[in-house]
């Protein structure tokens, strides 16, 4: 089954494409398809991080920084208080470009550092981006965030907030394109170089890989994907939200998705996003609604709200996972790299 296994991400995407159909068969309170939209966006974020951390083995703790840069670029490119007002794809391109620039600026001095130090530099980057966005309120509107972001218009069709289906398939298509691109990159010479750098930097350099350049290309691809995720997030919310929303916790949640799914595994990232974000935005909201409908527990009690248990459960999951299944739920199969299929 190695072929199915290494193409499992396409199975996932196909199932996701059918979910809205399945949704119509379910009773009202169990419907979930509209809540899959943030999962698509976070899967894109995870995909970007997976290129950097999963394929190339560079621990990046600043994914939220790139997401913020992408999101704010998209907002500035579209919102009518700025002079640009580009269309959806133009704004997406602009986010990708600013994200890429940020990736190069961060990568140039830091990619020569070894493991832990690079991780700390990316962490610092994430914090600095967040603070700068908050403080430059002339451009970014500070803590208010930029809003409203106009709804995307594609080929004359205006996306309405009430109807989730067009959004659903828009995000799904972008995610699918990204998955195809990344899985092809993985099998290309660039991808092999990334993986060789991860497995053994010295051996890879001896075989003629320009290690810093390989790392830089991974960093750039990762930065672009994370910024596009940020742009989609902003278009989905209709606002950039508060700069504090792009904090360290987002970076960590993205990292957890990649690790829970299995480092370097594309189907793993998709499953990781489903597990981590789905737990948060589907399961917890459903449980909270159910508990509220019982209304027997006092709502002021901190233990009564399922949302207050979130980080305990995330944390326990991570610790238990590292103890018993550190390679992730869907570990990257090595066999097919070896055979070169």
């Amino acid at each position: 089954m190695p072929r199915l296994r290494s193409n499992l991400h396409f199975v996932f995407l196909a199932v996701a494409a059918l979910c809205p159909l399945l949704d119509t068969l379910l009773p009202e309170q169990l419907r979930f398809a509209d809540a899959l939209r943030p999962i698509f966006i976070f899967a894109l974020l995870g995909l970007g991080l997976n290129v950097v951390t999963g394929f190339t083995g560079l621990l990046n703790l600043g994914a939220a920084g790139f997401m913020a840069i992408g999101g704010y670029s998209y907002a500035i490119a579209t919102c009518d208080i700025y002079p640009f007002q580009l269309g959806f794809f133009g704004a997406l391109l602009m986010s990708a470009l600013t994200g890429m620039t940020a990736g190069i600026l961060l990568g140039l001095p830091t990619l020569r550092l070894r493991g832990d130090y690079l991780a700390i530099a990316t962490l610092g980057f994430g914090e600095i981006v967040q603070s700068i966005i908050r403080n430059l309120d002339v451009i970014t509107k500070g803590t208010q965030g930029i809003n409203p972001i106009p709804a995307p218009i594609l080929f004359g069709y205006v996306f309405q907030p009430e109807n989730y289906l067009p959004w659903y398939y828009l995000f799904w298509s972008i995610l699918t394109v990204a998955v195809v691109v990344v899985s092809n990159l993985e099998r290309s010479s660039v991808g092999r170089r990334w993986i060789s750098v991860r497995e053994d930097e010295l051996a890879s350099a001896c075989m003629g890989t320009d290690v810093v350049r390989a790392k830089m290309s991974a960093f750039i691809v990762g930065a672009i994907l994370c910024s596009i995720a940020g742009a989609l997030w902003v278009s989905y919310l209709g606002s950039t939200g508060e700069p504090g929303n792009y904090d360290f916790q987002i970076s960590i949640i993205a990292l957890c998705m990649v690790i829970v799914g299995g480092l370097g595994s594309i189907p793993g990232v998709l499953l990781g996003a489903l597990v981590m974000i789905g737990f948060n935005s589907i399961l917890l909201t459903k449980i909270a609604a159910w508990i509220n409908s019982l209304s027997t527990v006092s709502s002021t009690n901190v233990l009564a709200s399922p949302n207050n248990w979130k980080y305990l459960i995330f944390g326990l999951a991570l610790v238990v996972m590292m103890r018993f299944k550190p390679e992730g739920l869907l570990p990257a199969g090595r066999h097919y790299h070896r055979r070169g299929k």
Binding site: L59, L255, C256, I259, L312, G315, A317, L318, V319, M322
Partner: peptide
């Protein structure tokens, strides 16, 4: 181990 530490920090 680092991920484990992050998990503990959440807990």
């Amino acid at each position: 181990v680092l991920v484990s530490a992050i998990g503990l920090s959440f807990i």
